[in-house]
């Protein structure tokens, strides 16, 4: 069994299993928690819980006035690599084939050259995010293994994917195997680290929005 056989077979099977167990576990353990008892009266004229949640979600897509100056770089940088990751994952033909094989749905791909450029930009912005974390004294103090590991498992598939498509330094089968193994690592780490924000961000921001709006908070 070659490294590519291991990556396409048992490694992905293991990663899918860990991902599915972890995501189901974390989501249900949060969703089934009892709601906190509201001890304050609803402010008059404030929107419903749902509207409050949506309102905050939209407002927080861009930093509020007092924080804008300090948060501008990290906000823009984060938007670039989040959008970049989405374009790379859902735009490259080889990835669409993978997703089609897993979920049975397909869509037209972007030209490979466009995806390669986006991947390079994404990798650069991920590197900038790490540099910012390492050079900002406050952020560095707050950072834990979780932050660095989550960064690594996100950046590794982008870097190894670029190597695979450019056939650099090693035969394609080796590079493709390493790329798939890096994706397996991402999937296995996903539920247990910060990457779980992909699901939890909708819960946390919505609950915060509902909480704020009930009290008339408008940030």
């Amino acid at each position: 069994m070659t490294l590519l056989d291991v990556a396409r077979g048992p490694a992905l099977e293991f990663a899918f299993a860990v991902f599915a167990i972890g995501v189901a576990w974390r989501l249900l353990s949060v969703l089934l928690l009892p709601w906190a008892t509201e001890r304050s009266a609803k402010r008059p004229g404030t929107p419903s819980r749902a509207m409050g949640a949506i309102g905050l979600f939209v407002r927080h897509l861009w930093p509020a006035g007092p924080f804008r100056r300090n948060a501008l770089f990290i906000t823009l940088n984060s938007y670039v690599f989040h959008l970049g990751l989405a374009i790379v994952v859902f735009g490259l033909a080889q990835h669409i084939v993978f997703l089609q094989n897993a979920f049975g749905v397909s869509w037209p791909s972007l030209p490979s050259g466009v995806v390669y450029v986006v991947a390079v930009i994404t990798l650069a912005t991920l590197a900038a995010a790490l540099a910012h974390r390492l050079t900002s004294p406050v952020l560095r103090l707050l950072s834990t293994f979780n932050d660095y590991m989550s960064w690594f498992v996100t950046a590794a598939p982008v870097a190894t994917g670029l190597l695979a498509v450019s056939h650099l330094w090693a035969p394609y089968e080796t590079l493709l195997a390493i790329h798939i193994l890096s994706v397996a690592l991402l999937l296995a780490w996903f539920p247990f680290g910060k990457l779980m924000h992909s699901f939890l961000v909708f819960l946390t921001r919505s609950e915060t929005g509902a909480f704020y709006s009930r009290r008339g908070v408008e940030i």
Partner: peptide, 21 residues
């Protein structure tokens, strides 16, 4: 295609979701 998985992942994921749930 080379970029796709070769395992029987649907069954594994189904069982894993049930266990995780």
């Amino acid at each position: 295609p080379l970029s796709t998985n070769t395992g029987n992942d649907a069954e594994i994921v189904g069982a894993a979701v049930a266990a995780g749930a």
